[in-house]
């Protein structure tokens, strides 16, 4: 049993009366890869940003989030500046807008290193080149001399990963690291991310809308809906035997080649309607309006029932088997 690195309890992210994340609890152990899945508006990106202390103006987090024993929620900006990059870092979504268009790649990487004052046995340049190698970037010297717009989307995304791992952080939050690249490149980028996380012995929180990414690269999964965790647990059990109706529906509506090869013309089941906006989340279970098995009981917010190693927030868990 490995030690817990991040412990999040009764954690919310809100602006006034609007909440993007509502009272979530979860843990990330050392060396663990956790996937957070949800559609846009589920609150997963705000959750990631809030852990970094980078929420947009007017938003704040409440509850508790402890990173290796240090409370992040009440941490001063000065202390946050100290831990960003070194203890916790982030891989951002859109690599073109996430990199400064007016600075060369090398300069931007340099900053990510310099600030953290990494103790290094080799020279600075050697260290960067070793890193570029681990990022699988061809011709690293030349790439360092380029501006972001001169690189391909996949290369830029790998540079962002390089910046995130530059200072050996203990926790890396990756927010949709592959949505801006196409499927062939997606796998290369994810492979680079995972190999670097493993190399450092860091933990990973991978935020994505893509179930396939989580099921292939993570050990644990959290499914979010309208700011709440509806189901969480080991990937194998959640993906193999989903309990929450939303998880079931999400997995059911996923198209995979396997599915097509076997049952060709079978129609995809769909979830009717759409997720409520965060300004208009209904009371009780937020999924009840789209749920086939909703009953009067769903007017009350279900607690997180423990089923084996996982939690499920639903009043209608038919079978309790793993």
């Amino acid at each position: 049993m490995s030690k817990d690195l991040l412990t999040v309890k009764n954690y919310s992210v809100s602006s006034g009366s609007i909440s993007a994340v509502r009272q979530v609890d979860f843990k990330v152990s050392e060396n663990e890869k956790l996937g957070i899945v949800g559609e846009s508006g589920a609150g997963k990106s705000m959750l990631g940003l809030s852990l970094m202390g980078l929420l947009p103006f007017g938003w704040e987090s409440t509850g508790s989030a402890e990173l290796a024993g240090r409370e992040l929620v009440s941490m001063s900006e000065k202390d946050l500046v100290g831990i960003r990059g070194r203890d916790i870092s982030m891989v951002f979504q859109d690599s073109l807008s996430a990199l400064n268009p007016m600075k060369k790649i090398g300069k931007q990487l340099e900053f990510a290193f310099k600030h953290a004052e990494v103790s290094r046995s080799e020279s600075f340049d050697e260290y960067i080149l070793t890193l570029m190698h681990s990022l699988k970037i061809d011709d690293p010297e030349l790439s360092l001399q380029k501006y972001p717009h001169q690189l391909s989307g996949g290369q830029r995304q790998r540079i962002l990963i390089g910046m995130a791992v530059a200072c050996n952080p203990r926790l890396i939050v990756a927010d949709e690291p592959t949505t801006s690249v196409d499927s062939v490149i997606q796998r290369d980028v994810l492979d680079v991310l995972i190999s670097n996380v493993s190399r450092l012995g860091a933990s990973l929180v991978l935020i994505t809308h893509d179930l396939a990414v989580v099921s292939n690269y993570c050990e644990k999964i959290i499914v979010m809906y309208a700011g709440k965790i509806v189901e969480s647990g080991p990937v194998v059990s959640v993906m193999g035997n989903p309990k929450h109706p939303y998880t079931k529906a999400l997995i059911g509506s996923h198209i995979s080649l396997k599915h097509i090869k076997s049952g060709m013309s079978k129609r995809l089941p769909v979830i009717p309607g759409m997720m409520p906006a965060i300004q208009a989340i209904p009371t009780g279970c937020a999924f009840k309006t789209r749920c086939g098995s909703a009953t009067a009981a769903c007017e009350v917010q279900p607690p997180n029932f423990l089923v084996g190693e996982r939690t499920v927030s639903c009043w209608h868990i038919e079978d309790q088997s793993e």
Binding site: M52, E77, S89, M90, F92, S97, A98, N100, F111, A164
Partner: peptide, 15 residues
């Protein structure tokens, strides 16, 4: 307001 400012801050740049 640009994302790359947030990136800078994510790697320890003060406001």
């Amino acid at each position: 307001r640009q994302d790359y400012v947030r990136t800078g801050r994510a790697f320890g740049m003060s406001e």
